[in-house]
Design a binder for these strands. Structure first.
Lengths: 341, 341
DNA sequence: CCCGGTTACCCAATCGATTGTGTAAGGCGG
DNA sequence: CCGCCTTACACAATCGATTGGGTAACCGGG
């Protein structure tokens, strides 16, 4: 029940040093250097006394001061379109966890997928002197990425990939293929795709994976059967309406590249008096926690979102250590449920 | 097309000062002080030259250095149970936006509602020297809050409240009352509540608001009709199963204090062959973007999540400015949809 | 011409940790 | 008993911005 700290303010290296009658630099080496240096800096006995006192006084180093000197903040900046998107939020949890394990903290910001906002956010991150960036809202045209490379800012992409840059993503092409195989084997021959935003690799890859596999199985995908849309529920609903009014013959199966779009589509189908899973099969993507729990459980491609986040952190760490890194694609799997059974 | 910067490293105050042949302190006052001080520091002409050069060189002050001196980081720490919870993610968006407007950046961490983790996260935040905390995972018993108060850490609560501490929340009691009024007026007389986690004020207040109003309308709420549960879909499903097996007579209406729990309940009802909105009414809480888009649109109490987040930031700012603040409760409204019409 | 008051700056200490470079004291071999 | 090598530290500069004092030059009034 000792008074943790007298009551004043935070303890500094100098405080510890003064109290022990030794020099701050010695304390610093003991507490913050790796074994080698620390051993050279003081006797074992002194080192122990220092560590003991640090614990008792609740010493915690000031990252401002350390960062000022070392020019490193142990901060990773994370940019996502919006955290209220469950997919990104989950990846961020993986990121946060993995970063903490490496002694880094993370900084998130929402860009709302707006190029101008992306630029502003990156700038504030850099102004905060983050050591590196994890970018979750990369657009395929990616002028910003070129610029960052030119400015030698260390970064990796997460969720979406852009050729030529390091990234941690789901193998979205494979995901699309899994869906094609599944729907084909269920006997569907008329299908449509709710394809997402064309600037996102997730949308492109999933759609391409599906369409290419479908064709190689002998199926047809008329242009009108691929509808680009927003990733949210409303977007999915609109896309489904579009498909229902313009596609002849009407598809018996829908592949939405995102669970939320799939949910919106399910709503639209129902409004048209169609029963999901009976009249029309629906498959989503990401297997968010909702999919399994919906009134009509939704088939979905499970992507390892947490692992993708963790992987992004590992990649960025390697970049920060000056190593070369290759893009990583994690394997998805298909969860078949009532909506397409 | 001028070379933005020679190519070296970041520009410092001293660089600017040297180039203009004046003292760094003068530059500092011109760029970072408010009009008064700045005017006293240099002539209008000099000030203009400084600002001009700062712009040209892309100067951005080093927050590490500034913070070291001023003992402030312009950082707000935000702790939430989990960002993959849409409700907290949305509030965080409001927080992030409002903080940015005040020149603050935010730091989020997930505590998974685990007391030990809460403590650890708070500690890392404080180690990072955040100026204040926004706590979104407060437990009603709240030993941690007492401790923070004792340590004079500036903080406010968001989403959940704890008596005696400043907070920005929805008026959850009112929310519960709205639901009671609605269901009563629809003629329901047997109801059950999926009440959420008993350590969260949101759960308690919404449940109390509902139950108290229900009784004052002349209704009965047997103890078995209030089931505590997790806030997620699976929790809602289990609670609904519980209610369907143990409540006699079976309720004709369910109030779930959270949309996700409501969705889980809808799934359970369906498994029991009951049609939501016809056999059993369901009402959720928060009016997350999903509610309106579900196959059977969900009635829900709309809580102003973005505004709650923004308000929390305003409150914390006032606390940081040394002012006293009172808890704020923002008014919810009921959105009636097919699930209870 | 002297004096008080502006104007427009400069000086230097400071925040807390890091790190390259000393340097006394003690031990040991010769 | 001397010189060299460890051992165990101490010194001081540094990172970039902030801020409480100066102070020289100039202006106007008396």
């Amino acid at each position: 029940m000792e008074g943790t700290t007298a009551g004043d303010r935070t303890v500094t290296l100098k405080d510890l040093a003064d109290e022990l009658g030794i020099h701050p630099s010695t304390v610093s080496r003991i507490l913050h250097s790796d074994a080698e240096v620390a051993r050279g800096a003081a006797s074992v006995a002194t080192a122990e006394r220092v560590r003991e006192l640090a614990r008792k006084r609740g010493y915690s180093p000031d990252p401002q001061a350390a960062g000022l000197r070392t020019r490193r903040t142990r901060l990773m900046g994370v940019i996502v379109p919006r955290l209220s998107d469950l997919v990104l939020a989950t990846m961020y949890e993986g990121i946060d966890e993995a970063a903490a394990a490496l002694g880094y903290s993370t900084f998130v910001m929402n860009s709302r997928d707006d190029p101008e906002e992306q630029r502003r956010r990156t700038d504030t991150m850099l102004a905060r002197r983050v050591d590196g960036l994890i970018i979750g809202d990369a657009h395929l045209d990616g002028g910003l990425l070129q610029e960052l490379t030119a400015r030698k800012v260390p970064f990796v992409l997460v969720n979406r990939r852009v050729p030529g840059y390091p990234s941690a993503t789901c193998d979205d092409v494979l995901g699309g293929e899994l869906v094609a195989d599944h729907l084909w084997s269920k006997g569907h021959r008329n299908v449509a795709v709710i394809a997402g935003e064309p600037y996102a690799s997730t949308a492109i890859d999933r759609t391409d994976g599906f369409v290419d596999r479908w064709r190689s199985l002998g199926g047809k995908v008329p242009p009108k059967a691929v509808v680009w849309s927003r990733f949210d529920t409303a977007g999915g609903r609109e896309a489904a309406e579009d498909i229902l009014t313009h596609c002849h013959p009407q598809p018996t199966a829908l592949f939405a590249v995102n669970d939320f779009a799939a949910i919106g589509a399910m709503g639209a189908l129902r409004s048209h008096g169609l029963t999901v899973g009976v009249d029309v099969a629906v498959v989503g993507f990401n297997d968010t926690s909702l999919a399994a729990e919906l009134p009509i459980p939704l088939s979905s491609v499970r992507s390892p979102m947490l692992d993708i986040g963790r992987t992004a952190v590992q990649l960025l760490k390697r970049v920060l250590d000056g190593k070369m890194v290759e893009p990583v694609r994690l394997e998805p799997s298909l969860c078949v449920r009532e909506s397409s059974a």
